[in-house]
Design a binder for these strands. Structure first.
Lengths: 154, 154
DNA sequence: TATTGTTATACTCTATAACTATA
DNA sequence: TATAGTTATAGAGTATAACAATA
């Protein structure tokens, strides 16, 4: 409807603002955004390459290269299960967990600032809507247990 | 539970959902997202490479390659001004304008669906908040931007 | 000399297709 | 044969540094 004309494109611009800042924050932690997102996904629990590819919206072969580079840097570890030796399970190393833990807190604080200009009550409603929209893709728990509560709460 | 805990990260996930769909829509119009975004920026009026690099948040040299590929495909045109022959002004060709026009409408419709699960009133408020946040960078409902500068939060 | 933009080079990310190993 | 992942190859995007042309 007329009132919402441009809403879809506004959403794209919002995502550009978020991504631009996200990439910068990741870089400060020596990660690319793809690496950071992968680490967030396997934070909870190790996952197979297939599931992971689906979660990341990437092809399996693209994921192989990404994992190669991350394994080389000691961020993740490939493990083969006994009962089906075709499958590879990917888990974060201690280093990977440490890095993504710090990143998560930093991202949560600094990305939230993007909505900082909204009045507090509107910001709260906005945060709630974002949470509802993203609920299906968020994992059962936060990638990092008890990440600092920063951002919209006042 | 801490309703707002993780708001910044939720915002990142939202941007991932939006970008994922945006990339797909762009691909259906035979554009990469970088090409599409560039076309949106120069739609209304030609811009110099320097301004453009800043608007896109990219280095000038990175922009050169992007423009090379787009020029090769007939989407944009480089022009040199008389009064300062160092500067290059980039404008969209008729083909580029036609393609981005169709893309814009498609994006507006299909990206908006991401918020489709929200109740109507909440969706309206959400759209309003997104519009306020992106006001400094967003285009108006038709592909006629009046953004004199992009990049809200640096 | 300072500014604008391009080249050279290298790396990450991603896709398609062909391949290997296991089931 | 079907499935899980990897390798081969290619192209897009981006960054740093060196460069050219113009002012």
């Amino acid at each position: 409807m007329a009132e919402n004309s441009g809403f879809g494109n506004d959403l794209v611009w919002l995502s550009v603002l978020v991504q631009r800042r996200y990439v910068q924050i990741c870089a400060e932690h020596d990660l690319t955004s793809a690496q950071a997102t992968l680490l967030c996904v396997i934070m909870d629990e190790p996952q197979g390459m297939g599931e992971l590819a689906q979660a990341l919206g990437a092809a399996k072969n693209a994921l192989s290269g990404l994992v190669d580079r991350m394994e080389r840097r000691g961020l993740v570890r490939r493990e083969t299960l006994q009962h089906d030796r075709r499958t590879v399970t990917l888990s974060a190393t201690a280093l990977g967990k440490q890095i993504v833990g710090a990143l998560y807190a930093d991202v949560d604080e600094r990305i939230a600032e993007i909505a900082g200009a909204l009045p507090a009550d509107e910001r709260h409603r906005f945060a709630g809507s974002v949470a509802r929209i993203t609920a299906p893709v968020r994992r059962t728990s936060s990638p990092v247990p008890d990440a600092d509560r920063l951002g919209v709460g006042d």
